[in-house]
Design a binder for these strands. Structure first.
Length: 423
RNA sequence: GGUGAGGUGACUGAGAGGCCGAAAGUACCGGUUUGCUAAACCGGCAUACUCCAAAAGGGUAUCGAGGGUUCGAAUCCCUCCCUCACCGCCA
């Protein structure tokens, strides 16, 4: 959520930013400013009224104490009259505040100056590419054939027990998952992240805090009986730890890492591009979250990008980094780098990580602040990044490392898996 | 799930319809003084919104959340949430 004060002071800049993000409802800005103006007008009036009521009440108290009951009665009648009009004022004010809030929440974050213009994924800026493109042997196949050939991921079993998009990992497939998770967590620990195991269901407040609610309600699994949601990413519970918190400056940056399963309904995604492990309803992910001082947040974003780079280098997978264009960025983000791994048998780039700086967009909702050296409470910046999401990494590993004799396991993972070949 | 007790500022903890944004203590910050691994004393110490061109200074709201009663609610009533204790059930 953008800060109202910022919007008041930077209307033109906001309009430009919204256009860069390919946001259509530009008239919302004018609407918000007008609602804000009205709201303040009514607020002033309602508060003046209330102040008068408070004064009268106090007077009644004093008169009663002195036993001047008749005088007190007179004032009572007067204050009852004011109270009637007060009710109307307050109701109107509540309506304005709600409308203002509902509109403000619809505005996406402002893009960082370095974000390129563009509307579609094709306009993302390819800023870095590294790694050797594998040359596959004759008869190489996509990962969904390898998984059944070696019986390591069982999609049919998932269909039977749960439904599409909820596969079983079996044997070396399960052990590879576990190995990858441990590898990712250990790498994060080396970079001084503190590990957290959060709940994987969250309440409404948390869903709102990180921006999944209200706009992405339909993308989360919902447990009606207890009014809870399954997390789409560990970002939600982790970042919400800092909701309504005033941190000490020396606590920053906060660095957390968490492994969790993630649940996404993916309503509306069908077809060939969701085949195999490419898109699932439940998947595993190791997520990095940082809460930082605003002046350091972009430097920290760079370190997070470097961290993810390191992971892909160690896994020896060819990858590229995209700077997302305004139109392809998420609602919350000010700057996002996507990591894509090349999956050789599909001849496709698969997104495996998204690293973003949200600046104060989330923290403004969360009311996550820190006390700076002047003793002022200021909104912190929040950042997060996947490091990494498993299924597409597995897909790329299987496809790129396949040989006629089986799928080789990259060196770094061998100690984690306890084997060096899937056959 | 049942029964009981309770949720007050960074923390401990008083208050039980008006004198309460809230005693006192601890912690923290600033100062004075004496000196020495600190003590005493003095002062300061919530957040948000808002009024004012700004500062100074006002106003409003907030004692778990939401509603109600009342001229007036931390205090009374209702609903919900949470914590603790005991019982029941259970990985």
């Amino acid at each position: 959520m953008l800060q109202l004060q910022y919007l008041r002071d930077n209307k033109e800049a906001v309009l430009l930013g919204l256009q860069k993000k390919n946001f259509k409802e530009l008239n919302l800005v004018e609407e918000i400013l007008s609602l804000d103006e009205q709201k303040r007008k009514y607020q002033t009036e309602a508060e003046r009224n209330k102040s008068e009521l408070n004064a009268l009440s106090k007077e009644i108290g004093n008169l009663m104490k002195q036993g001047m009951l008749d005088e007190a009665e007179t004032i009572k009648i007067k204050s009852t009259g004011i109270r009637e009009s007060q009710k109307g004022l307050e109701d109107h004010l509540d309506g304005l505040e709600k409308a203002l809030f509902d509109s403000l929440v619809k505005l996406p974050n402002m893009p960082h100056a370095s974000v390129p213009f563009g509307k579609t994924p094709e306009e993302n800026e390819n800023i870095f590419q590294e790694g050797v493109m594998p040359v596959l042997h004759e008869g190489a196949v996509p990962h969904w054939e390898l998984t059944s050939k070696y019986d390591i991921v069982d999609f049919e079993m998932g269909n039977k027990v749960t439904g599409a998009g909820f596969p079983f990992y079996k044997g070396k497939g399960a052990r590879l998952q576990r190995g990858l998770i441990n590898f990712f967590l250990d790498e994060a620990l080396k970079s001084n992240y503190i590990e957290v195991q959060p709940p994987i269901v969250i309440n409404k407040e948390s869903g709102f805090g990180t921006g999944q609610l209200p706009d992405k309600e339909g993308q989360m699994y919902y447990i009606g009986i207890d009014d809870l949601y399954l997390i789409p990413t560990a970002e939600v519970p982790i970042t919400n730890m800092y909701r309504d918190v005033i941190l000490k400056e020396e606590q920053l940056p906060v660095k957390n890492v968490a492994y969790t399963p993630c649940f996404r309904r993916e309503a509306g995604s069908y077809g060939a591009h969701v085949r195999g492990l490419n898109r699932l309803h439940q998947f595993d992910k190791v997520e990095l979250v940082q809460i930082a001082r605003p002046e350091e947040s972009y430097q920290i974003l760079d370190t997070m990008v470097a961290h993810v780079k390191g992971l892909l280098q160690k896994l020896e997978l060819p990858y590229r980094i995209l700077r997302l264009c305004g139109g392809d960025m998420s609602f919350n983000s000010a700057l996002t780098f996507d990591f894509e791994v090349f999956s050789a048998a599909q001849q496709k780039w698969l997104e495996v990580s998204s690293v973003s700086n949200f600046e104060s967009f989330q923290t403004n909702r969360l009311k996550c602040r820190y006390k700076n050296s002047d003793g002022k409470n200021v909104l912190a910046h929040s950042l997060n990044g996947s490091a990494l999401a498993l299924p597409r990494i597995v897909a790329a590993l299987l496809e790129n490392y396949q040989t006629p004799d089986g799928v080789k396991i990259p060196k770094v993972l061998q100690p984690y898996c306890g084997f060096d070949l899937i056959n």
